[in-house]
Every structure is written in structure tokens, then in C-alpha cells.
């Protein structure tokens, strides 16, 4: 392993550790009972189970399409990592969208307002990272969309979830609407 590859691997590892630490901090800060784990009631659990099922099928279909394209010898102008991450991002969006539409995205012990602040911040952070990557010319590798483009995919995913939550929140009124 040459020194540049070693530095790159170390960078990815450090980045991953920092990412996990930030995620844990966000999970902690968005709960109102000092827990990291989200608490859902029985209906929310039931609906979320369906969401996981839909997300699983979505991921299976995405991976299936990717395999089928490979078998047919059709090459998309994207790297394999981007293809895989796109499938994951779509399935996560399906899970989140299903949860939002059925009032089970936000847990009982979650601060909804905090999450509604965190979501666009995370989206903008990913967007900024993607723009920085494109400015340094890292997006295209050998004529294909490379791994750094994943920031754009993550940003799109987060913004879709945020907009869906915003629309649903507006629709619900966020009040004690008896017939909502």
C-alpha cells in the first residue's frame, strides 16, 4: 500500500468516526428524555414495519436493476459505489416518506422542531460538500460519476425527507386537530 492510499484510507476512517460521533450527538440532542434510542408506540411500530418491508423491496429492485444492467452489458456512466448508494438512498427515502405520511417518522421522545432544523442543515452540509468536490474536479473519474457525487445524492435524499415532513407538518397543523 503506497503512502497516498494509506493517507486516503486513514482519511476515510477518521471521517467515518467523526460522522458516527456527530450522528450520535444529533440523536442525543433531538431526544427529550436524554436517550439515544427512539421510542415509538405500538401503531407507529406496526406502520414502520411495513415501511421497512417497502424499503427492502425498493433496495432489492434497485440492486436487481443494477445486476440486470451488468448482465446485459449496459454500463451506466456512474461508478458501482454510486449505483449502490443511490439504491440505499432511494430505499431510505421510501422508509422515511412512508413514516412521515403515516405519522410515525417522529418518535414519541423526539423533538420534532429540532429535527426540522437538523434536516436542512445536514442537507446543506452535503450540498456544500458536493459543490466543493465538483469545484476540485473530483466528481468525474474516467468519464464516470465518482464516489464524491454521493454528497449530492445524500443532499437530495435529506431535502426530499425535509420537504415531505414540512408538507405533512403543515397538513397536520401541528395542533390538537381532532379530525386530522
Amino acid at each position: 500500500m503506497d503512502q497516498i492510499t494509506l493517507y486516503k484510507s486513514m482519511g476515510v476512517l477518521v471521517g467515518l468516526c467523526i460522522g458516527i460521533a456527530i450522528a450520535i450527538l444529533i440523536l442525543f440532542l433531538t431526544k427529550n428524555n436524554g436517550k439515544i434510542k427512539a421510542d415509538y408506540d405500538e401503531r407507529q411500530e406496526l406502520v414502520r414495519h411495513k415501511g421497512y418491508k417497502y424499503a427492502f423491496y425498493t433496495l432489492a429492485i434497485c440492486n436487481g436493476i443494477s445486476c440486470l444492467l451488468d448482465i446485459c452489458g449496459l454500463q451506466l456512466p456512474v461508478e458501482k459505489s454510486v449505483e449502490v448508494m443511490t439504491g440505499i438512498a432511494i430505499s431510505i427515502t421510501v422508509l422515511a416518506f412512508h413514516g412521515i405520511m403515516n405519522d410515525c417518522y417522529f418518535a414519541l421522545n423526539e423533538k420534532k422542531n429540532s429535527i426540522m432544523v437538523v434536516l436542512p442543515v445536514v442537507g446543506l452540509f452535503n450540498l456544500a460538500t458536493g459543490i466543493a468536490n465538483s469545484m476540485t474536479g473530483n466528481i468525474f473519474v474516467d468519464g464516470k460519476v465518482g464516489f464524491p457525487a454521493i454528497s449530492f445524492i445524500c443532499a437530495a435524499m435529506v431535502f426530499v425527507i425535509f420537504i415531505a415532513a414540512l408538507i405533512k407538518g403543515t397538513d397536520d397543523g401541528g395542533s390538537d386537530d381532532e379530525e386530522s
Binding site: Q44, C104, L108
Partner: peptide
């Protein structure tokens, strides 16, 4: 609905 939900430890949407 919110009062009942809080007393039962569920979401208001569940009571609804």
C-alpha cells in the same frame, strides 16, 4: 386527544 395520548404513552395520531 393529546392529553389522553400523553396519559397512555402513545402519540396523538394513534388516539385519533
Amino acid at each position: 386527544q393529546d392529553d389522553l395520548a400523553k396519559a397512555c404513552g402513545v402519540s396523538r395520531q394513534t388516539i385519533n
